[in-house]
Design a protein around this nucleic acid. Structure first.
Lengths: 212, 212
DNA sequence: TCGGAACCTGAATGTTGACTCATGTTTCAA
DNA sequence: TTGAAACATGAGTCAACATTCAGGTTCCGA
C-alpha cells in the first residue's frame, strides 16, 4: 500500500467556488461537519439539518453550496482519496526499496485510518451510496500502485509476478481489512507491530522458510 | 480463504417457524425475494413492497414473518455466512496441504461471489446496516481461519508467523477485494487464473525468488 | 361439519427528512 | 453612499415508506 498519482482531474467542481473569504469559510465548515456526521452516523442516518447544525449555519445555507446530499458525499470521497494518496506518498518517500515501502505503507495506512476514522467510513460507505465514486477511488489507487510494482519489478526489488492487477487488489484488500480490524475496530495494538507482521506476510508469503 | 466452523448458534430464530407447508413456502419466497431486492437495489432503496411484490404476496404478509425490515436483512447475512463457510469447506476438503487449500479457497471464494452476487452485496452492506451482524460474520470466519493456520503451522506446512490474527485479516482482505474486483465488477477473467496468481502472492510473497 | 389455528391482505396512519423559496443581511466596488 | 452580487435563513412543501390493524381466507383435526 502506497503510491502516488499525478494531478487530480478536479471533477466538475462547484460551479466556480465561493467568491469571498466568508464563503470559503462556510464551505469548509460544511464539508468538515458533513464528514464528521456521515462518518459517525452514516449516510442515511444523517440529516442535512444535522450537518448544518454542526456547522453552525442555517439549513438553507447547505443548498447554497451543494446541489444535493449526495453531492457533498461524493466530494468527501474524492477529498479523502487525494488526502490518503498524499499521506502515503509522504510516508514511503524515503524507503530504500519497495519491500520497505510496503511495510511503511501498511503502517502509514493504519495510522491514517486511525486518525481519520470518520472520513474512512465515508469511503467505505461510498460503495453503496456513490458506487462510481468508490470505483474511481480504488481504480485511481490501483493504477498508481500497479505502476509502483512494475517499476520495482524492473529494478529487481520484487518478483515479476504474473498479474499485477491481481496482486494490487490483493494487497489493497489486505491493507483495507487490516484498517478495519486494527484501525476502526481496535486501535490499541501498536501500528508498527501490525505492519511488521502483515508486511512479512506480503513479502515472504505463507510458505515455510527454507532451512538455513 | 477457507475453513470450517462448528454448529451455528441459531440466533434467536423466528419464534418457532411456520407450522404448515404453505407457511414454509411463503417464508422461503420472502427470503429469496428479499435477498434479490436488497442485493440489487441496496437496503435503503428497497421498499418492503418491492419484496412482497416480488415474492407474490400481500404487503401485510411480510410482517407475519418478520418483525422489521432490518430483521430480514440480518437473517440474510447469517444465512450467507453459513452458506459460504459450507462451500469453502467443501471445496478445500481434498487439498493436500494448506498452501493448496489457499489456492482452492481463493478460487472457490471467487466463484461463490460470482454465483451469489446479490447475497454477497448484502453481506458487505451489512457493515452499515447491521454492524453487529457484519462483525459476527467476519469474526466467526476469522476464528475458524485462524485455527486452520495454527494447525497448518504445527504440521510445518506454513511458516509460524508472528501474529495469526493479523495474517488472517490480511488474507481475508485479499480474498474479499479480489471478490469485488473479479467477482462483482468483472467476472470475465478465468477464476482459476486469478486464484493462481493471487495464491502465488499469498504463498510466496512479493520478495524476489532466490536464484536457483 | 365445525371451530379455531395459521395464514393472508392492503388501506390507512404517522413520521421523517430532502429540498424549495421568499425574504433577509453582508460585503464591496464604484 | 449605494446598489447589486454574494451569502444566509428556516418555515413550509411533498413524496416516500415502515409499520399497524381490522377484517378476511384456508387448512385440518375431531
Amino acid at each position: 500500500m502506497s503510491q502516488h498519482s499525478g494531478s487530480e482531474p478536479a471533477p466538475v467542481e462547484e460551479r466556480s467556488g465561493p467568491k469571498t473569504e466568508r464563503g470559503r469559510r462556510t464551505l469548509r465548515r460544511l464539508l468538515d461537519a458533513a464528514g464528521e456526521e456521515f462518518g459517525t452516523r452514516g449516510y442515511h442516518e444523517t440529516a442535512i439539518s444535522n450537518i448544518t447544525t454542526r456547522a453552525g449555519v442555517g439549513l438553507g445555507t447547505f443548498y447554497v453550496y451543494f446541489k444535493s446530499k449526495e453531492e457533498v458525499f461524493r466530494a468527501l470521497v474524492a477529498d479523502m482519496g487525494a488526502l490518503l494518496r498524499h499521506a502515503l506518498t509522504e510516508r514511503t518517500r524515503d524507503a530504500h526499496d519497495r519491500l520497505e515501502a510496503e511495510r511503511l505503507g501498511i503502517q502509514a495506512y493504519l495510522e491514517f485510518v486511525r486518525s481519520h476514522k470518520a472520513l474512512y467510513r465515508v469511503v467505505m460507505e461510498a460503495q453503496f451510496v456513490a458506487p462510481e465514486a468508490y470505483r474511481d477511488y480504488y481504480n485511481t489507487f490501483a493504477a498508481a500502485y500497479r505502476q509502483q510494482l512494475a517499476q520495482a519489478a524492473d529494478r529487481g526489488e520484487i518478483n515479476p509476478g504474473q498479474d499485477d492487477e491481481g496482486r494490487v487488489w490483493a494487497l489493497m484488500g489486505a491493507s483495507s481489512f487490516l484498517g478495519i480490524r486494527y484501525g476502526s475496530w481496535d486501535d490499541s495494538v501498536d501500528s508498527a507491530t501490525v505492519a511488521e507482521a502483515a508486511s512479512d506476510l506480503m513479502i515472504n508469503g505463507l510458505a515455510p522458510r527454507a532451512k538455513k
